[in-house]
Simulated assay, not measured.
Amino acid sequence: MTQSLAPAVVPMNDLSRGIDRDREDFARVFDEVLASGYVIMGPKHAAFEQELAKYLGVLSASGVASGTDALEIAIKAAMPAGRSIVMTAANAGGYTTTAARRAGYNVRYADVDANSMCLSVETVEQHLSSEIGVVVVTHLYGNLTDINELVAVCHSHGVKVVEDCAQAIGARLSGVAAGSIGDIAATSFYPTKNLGALGDGGAIFTNSEELAVRVRELRQYGWSSKYRVTRAGGTNSRLDELQAGFLGVRLPLLDGLNERRRSIVASYVAAAMDGPLQVLPAASAHHVAHLAVALTDRRDEIRAALSLGGVQTDVHFPVPDHLQPGFAAAAQSLPITERLAQEVLSLPCFPEMTDDEIDAVCTAISALR
């Protein structure tokens, strides 16, 4: 038997492989949409919203045009009257800051827990005030942390909790899905996400009928009925029929694809044992391994060595929000956030990776010793 050779370069991602896997079903959906005559908010869109809500165990799911739109609309829907500040973490790529500012609100940042890299009661509670109306919790890298106590503390201060599930769709903690713990949640269907479309898209989900009504009005001009604007702050943000159909193809595959991601990370964790690279585990259903993330205080050196071993890497995310020049945030110190920004790096992790590619990454990690 001829032994297969390890690839010369292991990519961070290769979207073409997932497209090839699903090509036949995508072609069927395309033909069905063309035949139906519906291109916006048609039967595929309605079916996907229902299927997504059922999958997550929530009352309502509403499709929108992007994950950023989803965050903006969710924040608008949840913001209590008379409040104007959104609190969030500064280590998640700037998406919440962008969405909150587009919604017309100011942003403040809290530091993150050193282990989960997410907001926690300990990092948030000390900053809560009567001005803060919404706390956005990002389940970073696919890790659904236990935020039940944080939600309770926020509610005791009259603060609503928005979950950003863009990296954690399908994660479950004690059987409860990411996005069903806080007041309302947002996700992205950007093509690299665990549940990715062939273009942009997003969704908002909630167990509150009141918030669901607000979302449906806000995503379409503020209409309560056609041409009747009754809610201020409306926009035009709709998930198109083709993307809804494509996502309907992939939703039943999501749990299996997430399990494949977890197995990839487990291989990396084993390869990194006792070495200079600490690969963060994704060992159970609460973590869907959107990214395979590692920590090292020798990042540039390690990335160069992995590159020589044929392994691409990336950094998610190198500049915290409060240090981004374009955000011009008030000066503050977030020591854990700032340290992690200097130490994190991402390894290839997508479910269509071959076993040879996974082995090549493990070999390169083991060689770091």
Rank of each mutant, 00 (worst) to 15 (best):
I73C: 01
H45M: 02
M1W: 07
D20K: 08
A285H: 03
A171I: 06
Y221M: 14
D300F: 04
V315D: 07
T187S: 15
D69F: 14
L308D: 15
A99K: 05
C154N: 10
G309C: 08
L5E: 12
E301S: 13
K193M: 15
D240Q: 05
H155T: 03
V33R: 12
T337C: 06
M1I: 09
P335F: 08
R21H: 07
G309E: 11
T313H: 03
V176W: 01
S62D: 06
I147V: 11
T123W: 00
D22T: 11
V361F: 02
V9Q: 12
A289W: 09
V213I: 14
S60T: 14
R17W: 11
T96V: 15
L15Q: 09
V134E: 03
E259A: 15
V137Q: 03
V153W: 09
A47T: 15
M117C: 09
D359Y: 06
T98P: 00
G245H: 15
E49D: 03
I264N: 03
D22V: 08
S225C: 09
E125H: 07
L347N: 02
L52M: 09
Q167N: 05
E209S: 14
A90R: 08
G133D: 00
P281K: 05
R262W: 10
N207D: 12
L280V: 09
T363I: 03
P191A: 07
A92M: 10
V361A: 01
H45C: 11
Y95D: 10
Y227I: 02
L368I: 10
D164C: 06
L59V: 12
R369H: 15
N13T: 14
I365S: 09
K54T: 13
V121D: 05
V58K: 04
N13R: 13
L257P: 00
L119G: 01
A329W: 02
Q167T: 14
G275H: 01
G222D: 07
E49M: 07
V269S: 04
I169G: 04
G222A: 09
G158Y: 13
G67L: 05
K160Y: 01
A74M: 07
A186V: 04
A203M: 08
A360W: 02
A77L: 06
D355E: 15
M273R: 15
A232G: 12
R214I: 05
F48Q: 07
